[in-house]
Nucleic acid binder design. Sequence first.
DNA 1: TCGCTTCCGCTACAAGTTCTAACTCTTCCT
DNA 2: AGGAAGAGTTAGAACTTGTAGCGGAAGCGA
Lengths: 215, 215
Amino acid sequence: MAKSDPTTPRERYRTQVRAEVMERAWEQIATAGASALSLNAIAKHMGMSGPALYRYFANRDELITELVREAYRSLADTLAAAAADGADLAGLAHVLRTWALTDPQRYLLVYGTPIPGYQAPEDTTAISQEIATTLLDACAAALPPAAPASPLGTHLAQHRAWAADHPAPPEALALFLTLWTRLHGVLSLELAGHFTGMQFDPETLFDAELAALLP
Amino acid sequence: MAKSDPTTPRERYRTQVRAEVMERAWEQIATAGASALSLNAIAKHMGMSGPALYRYFANRDELITELVREAYRSLADTLAAAAADGADLAGLAHVLRTWALTDPQRYLLVYGTPIPGYQAPEDTTAISQEIATTLLDACAAALPPAAPASPLGTHLAQHRAWAADHPAPPEALALFLTLWTRLHGVLSLELAGHFTGMQFDPETLFDAELAALLP
DNA sequence: TCGCTTCCGCTACAAGTTCTAACTCTTCCT
DNA sequence: AGGAAGAGTTAGAACTTGTAGCGGAAGCGA
C-alpha cells in the first residue's frame, strides 16, 4: 500500500478541526478583540460542547499562541513575497500598511498591547527575525552609498547583537529601527482609532513619514 | 451652622471609597494589565464583598472609564506643568517618556490596543484636546520662522478641523502629528517589550527621533 | 472479519467572573 | 425622635476556563 503520506486519517481530522477552530477564533478576534476570545463560544459555534476543544488546544493561551504564530507567519510570507517580486523599501512599507488595515486586530495581536500573562514562545521570535531580515535587506539597498554616521548608527554599531548575522552596516540598522517605529507609530494610532474625529487622511501622514526616510 | 462645604459626610465617604477602589485598580492594572482587572478581587482586597462595589461603579466599564479619565488627566496636567515651567518641545517629549515609563500599563491603557466594546466618553476627548494644545503650542514655538511647505502641511491646511481653534500654522500641525506618532512608535514598542532581547538602548532611539525633528 | 486500543465528544463539576435582587442595618436629616 | 436614604450583606443567574470520568465510534493489526 502506498504509505507516501505519513498522516493517518485521525491526524488529518485533527489538523482540520484545529484549523476550523482557528478560523472561528479569527472571526471572533476581528469583531471583539483578542481579550474577548471565548473557547466556549467557538465550540458552540462549531456545534460541539465547550470541553471538547480541550482535546485540540491545551488551554486558551495555546490557542492564542497559535494565532500569534499564524499572524507572524502571514506577515513574514507577505513581505517575503513582495520582496521577491522586486518591491523596494517603500513598496514593503505599503505592503505592511495594507496587511495591517486588512485585519486590524491581527496587527494589534502581534504589535499591540501584550496579553497580560502571556509571553511569546521562541519560534515566534524566529519568524520575527525573518521579517526583520527582509526589511533589513531592503534598508541596506535603500541606503545611499556614503551615508553619514548618525549618533544612533554609532550606538547600534556597538549593540548589534540582535542583527549579528546580518551584514547590513550600522546605518542600515538605524534606518530599519527608525522605519519600524515610525510606521508602527502611525499604524497603531490609526488602528486604535486615535485619528477618528480628526479629518485628515492617515495615509498622507504615512506617506510623509516614508518620504522623510527615503530621500 | 457653617455650611461652607457643600459636600455631605456621605458624599465625602463616597468619593473616598471610590478613590481607594481606583487606587487598588491601578495596582492590579500595573501588575496584570487592564483586561485582567477584577472587581471581585478589588472588593476582597478592601475587606468587602463583591457586589458592594456596584454602589460606587455601575459596572466594570465605568471603572475603566474613570481610570482612563484619570490617566488622561494626569498626562495633561504633567505636560501643562512642565510647559508652565518653561519646558520646550524636547523637554515635553522627555516628560512624556518619563510619564510613560513610570507606569507602562497606564500609558497603554490610553494609547494602546483599545478595549473591545469600550469607547471613550466625550470628556476624555476634551482632555485629549488639552494635551494636543499644550504640544501644539510648543510645536508652534519650536518651528523655524520660515518653515518650507510640506505635502503633509498642505494637506493639513485643508483638514485642520481637529485644531480649528488653535492658531498654529499648518506646518506646526504637521510637526505635532509627526512628533506624536514617532514618539508613540518608539514608546509603545518599548513598553510592549518588542525591544527586549535586542541589546540597544531605546532611549538612544527616542533621542534620535527627537533630534531628527528639532534641527 | 474480529478484537483491541486509542481517541473523540459528552455530561458533570469546580472555581472563577460580572452583575441583579432583595434584605438588614446604620446613618443622616428634618 | 421618626422617616428616608444609602451601605453592605447573602443568594443566585448567566457566564467563563479548565478537569474528571464516561460512553461510543473509529482506526489498526492479526
